[in-house]
């Protein structure tokens, strides 16, 4: 026997269901999501391999001795702590080339281009206003990320609103420069940022900025290219 409240619920839900969208293209959309996840996983795997390689390289290089004698540059004992930048004289500037940091250190899952930015789940022009703890890590997943809040100057796609927080490789400490594949940044830095939801879902759910040129220093020309590509 059904109470009036229960009957109201049945009627309401049935009525809502009747307004549901048609499942046209559901298979195609699903397979696009599957391919997208594979790309994200590949990018992450490649990125983490790059970080490990750089860390191991730093440990085994002559710079290790210098780092041991120089506490501020010591290798962190906490695996979740920020990874020390690749040291030593003659180290390749990770920002060589226009794709910031994407050149020497890492192999990218997808080549940067303005058109490829349109394939990212979100893209915006923003200015860093705060840097805090990462928001996308799941328990058991340790990665050197920071949660970076931006004042959004322009959304290219995937979002709305005046501010947004995304996870990025942690900013470099001291005068060093990030060994990861996003530009060096701090409060006030203006960046063009694009990326993906780390674990899938809506564009800004556990959003993470891609490296390999997909997040880069702001220039008016590049911003215009992104705007054209995502229009």
């Amino acid at each position: 026997m059904s109470s009036p409240t229960e009957q109201q619920l049945r009627d309401l839900f049935a009525s809502e269901a009747s307004a549901a969208p048609q499942a046209v293209g559901l298979t195609d959309g699903t397979l696009r999501k599957v391919r997208h996840r594979r790309r994200v996983r590949t990018a992450w795997a490649v990125g983490m391999v790059g970080v490990v390689v750089l860390t191991v390289g730093g440990l085994t290089s002559d710079a290790l001795d210098q780092q041991r004698q120089n506490p501020p540059m010591a290798v962190p004992s906490d695996p979740t702590a920020e990874v020390a930048p690749p040291g030593g004289e003659g180290a390749t500037d990770p920002r060589d080339g226009d794709a910031v940091g994407g050149g020497a250190a890492q192999e990218c899952a997808e080549d940067y281009s303005p058109a490829a930015v349109a394939g990212r789940s979100f893209a915006f022009d923003g200015t860093v206003t705060a840097i805090g703890p990462a928001g996308s890590n799941r328990s058991g997943v340790a990665s050197p990320l920071a949660g970076v809040t931006f004042r959004v100057n322009e959304w290219f796609h995937g979002g709305a609103g005046q501010t947004v927080t995304v996870d990025m490789d942690a900013p470099p400490s001291g005068s060093g420069r990030s060994d990861a594949s996003v530009p060096a940044y701090g409060i006030g830095t203006r960046l063009l940022v694009s990326g993906e939801p780390r674990w899938g879902g809506p564009p800004l759910d556990a959003a993470i900025a891609w490296g390999c040129g997909f997040t880069r220093d702001y220039t008016a020309q590049t911003a215009a290219e992104w705007a054209d590509a995502t229009r």
């Binding site: 839900f13 809502e16 269901a17 307004a19 549901a20 969208p21 048609q22 499942a23 559901l26």
Partner: peptide
């Protein structure tokens, strides 16, 4: 049916 459930 899955899409309807998701919508509700």
């Amino acid at each position: 049916p899955l899409l309807r459930l998701a919508f509700v």
